[in-house]
Structure formats: C-alpha cells, structure tokens
Amino acid sequence: MTYKAILNGKTLKGETTTEAVDAATAEKVFKQYANDNGVDGEWTYDDATKTFTVTE
C-alpha cells in the first residue's frame, strides 16, 4: 500500500511517499524522515487518503 506524507516544516516543505504494509509502519518511516530533515511538529493522519501531515 502506498502512503503519503505532507511536510509543512519551517525549513522543509514538500511531499514524499512510501510503500508499507500498514499505517503504523509508514508512520515510523515518515517520522524518521522528518527527524532526519529537522522537522518536528504536530502529526495527523487521514485514513481515507492514506496521508500523514506534519506541521511545525
């Protein structure tokens, strides 16, 4: 399944996708990606669109 992350960081804005077996696995991948890029904020998840959003 393909999951998407939308990054609304102070220094990084954009989107990325990952293939994962479930939302929990995708969330770990996206949170690591955000952390590696200095983005730390509030996370939300929309199951209907399989989209995570982080906003700083």
Rank of each mutant, 00 (worst) to 15 (best):
W43H: 00
K13W: 11
G41A: 03
I6A: 03
I6R: 05
Y45M: 00
F52N: 00
G41Q: 02
L7M: 09
T44H: 11
E56L: 06
D22L: 03
K50Q: 10
D46P: 01
W43Y: 02
G41Y: 05
T51L: 04
K13Q: 13
E56A: 07
A34H: 02
T44N: 08
G38H: 09
V39D: 01
T55G: 05
F52R: 00
K28D: 06
V54M: 14
V54Y: 08
F30P: 00
A23I: 09
E56G: 05
T44R: 07
D47E: 14
T16H: 12
E42L: 11
Y3C: 04
E27T: 04
M1V: 13
T25W: 07
T16M: 15
T55Y: 08
E42C: 11
D40G: 09
T2Q: 10
W43D: 01
G9A: 06
V54F: 15
Y45E: 02
L12S: 08
T51F: 02
T44Y: 11
E19H: 13
A48P: 06
W43A: 01
K50D: 01
F52C: 00
F52W: 07
A34I: 05
T53F: 11
K28H: 08
T25K: 05
A34W: 06
V21T: 11
E42D: 11
A48M: 11
V54S: 02
Y33V: 05
A5F: 15
F30N: 00
E27F: 15
E15N: 06
G41S: 02
D36E: 13
E15L: 10
E19M: 14
W43P: 01
G14K: 14
G41I: 03
G9H: 06
V39Q: 03
G14F: 15
T49N: 08
M1F: 15
K13N: 08
T51A: 03
D36I: 10
V54T: 02
K4F: 12
T55K: 07
T53D: 01
V54R: 01
K4E: 04
A26D: 01
E15P: 03
E15A: 09
D36C: 08
A34C: 12
T18E: 03
D22E: 04
A20R: 02
E56H: 06
K50L: 12
T11L: 12
K50S: 05
A26Q: 01
V21N: 11
V21G: 10
T49P: 00
A5H: 04
A5W: 12
K50C: 06
N8G: 04
F52T: 01
D36T: 08
D22P: 00
D22W: 02
N35Q: 15
K10N: 11
V54H: 04
T11A: 10
E19L: 14
G41L: 04
A5T: 04
T49C: 05
K28T: 10
T16G: 04
D46A: 04
Y33D: 01
T11D: 11
Y33I: 08
G14I: 15
D36A: 13
N8S: 07
